[in-house]
Write a protein that binds this DNA or RNA. Structure first.
Length: 211
DNA sequence: AGCCTTTGACCAGCG
DNA sequence: TCGCTGGTCAAAGGC
């Protein structure tokens, strides 16, 4: 019963999205779906760690020298890698994500109730940045937007989370922000490859709809 | 002493 | 071209 509901809802969402995308661009969804399939079911021949399939989701990953360019204040185009996290009750700071960040600024965004905080990876050669915005309607929820990519090795330490973000983003986009419904767990296998572990059969069936 | 946070200023993108 | 706004810098202070 529960599985049927999930299947029905996912099919409805996909159907609506497909129609919308067809109107805008006839082939966009099919391309996205095939990409989602590649992420969810990476080819067995892929190397040790899963590769992110959407380079446009990441900002330029070229490494910087340890001397960050001074007086260079180029506005980066926002990488749409957005993650929603919840703080524990009573915790007013943005929750940790397991990586080491240094806060380099905060700004009150026009029309926003809370400040937006800007973080940079603590490692000097690393290009990764993170913006955290407290959600107005849900004070315990934070929207974390990641930019750049970790060239410092932290990413490897936390590769599972990075892959999750990618899967979350792609599937979420394809299904019309469905990603809060399910998050497959990535499991490191003995041969250093990753595979998805689904918490329930119904979740797995939803993912099958995208493949 | 060194690292981190705060905060005002600067600068570039965009409308 | 210009003003607004968001992203970043860097000095100062705290821990």
């Amino acid at each position: 019963m529960k599985q049927d509901v999930c299947r029905y809802l996912a099919a409805e969402i996909l159907s609506s999205y497909d129609k919308a995308m067809s109107l805008l661009n006839g082939t966009a969804l099919s391309g996205m779906m095939s990409k989602s399939k590649e992420i969810i079911n990476p080819a067995p021949s892929s190397s040790t760690a899963p590769q992110l399939e959407f380079p446009q989701l990441l900002a330029d990953s070229s490494t910087k020298s340890c001397d960050r360019p001074s007086k260079l204040r180029k506005r980066k185009t926002l990488a749409p890698r957005t993650e929603y996290v919840e703080a524990r009750p009573g915790e007013e700071v943005s929750p940790k994500d397991g990586l080491n960040w240094r806060k380099y600024g905060q700004k009150l965004i026009l029309g926003a109730k809370y400040h937006r905080e800007y973080f940079q990876c603590v490692y000097c050669h690393c290009d990764a940045t993170k913006m955290v915005q407290q959600i107005e309607t849900e004070p315990l929820s934070f929207e974390a937007t990641y930019g750049g990519s970790h060239s410092c090795g932290q990413e490897n330490k936390n590769q599972n989370e990075e892959v999750l973000v990618a899967v979350e983003t792609q599937v979420g986009r394809a299904a019309g922000q469905l990603y809060e419904c399910y998050i497959p767990e990535m499991v490191l296998t003995q041969n250093n490859s990753y595979k998805t572990k689904y918490p329930s059969d119904s979740t797995y069936e939803i993912l099958q709809l995208f493949s």
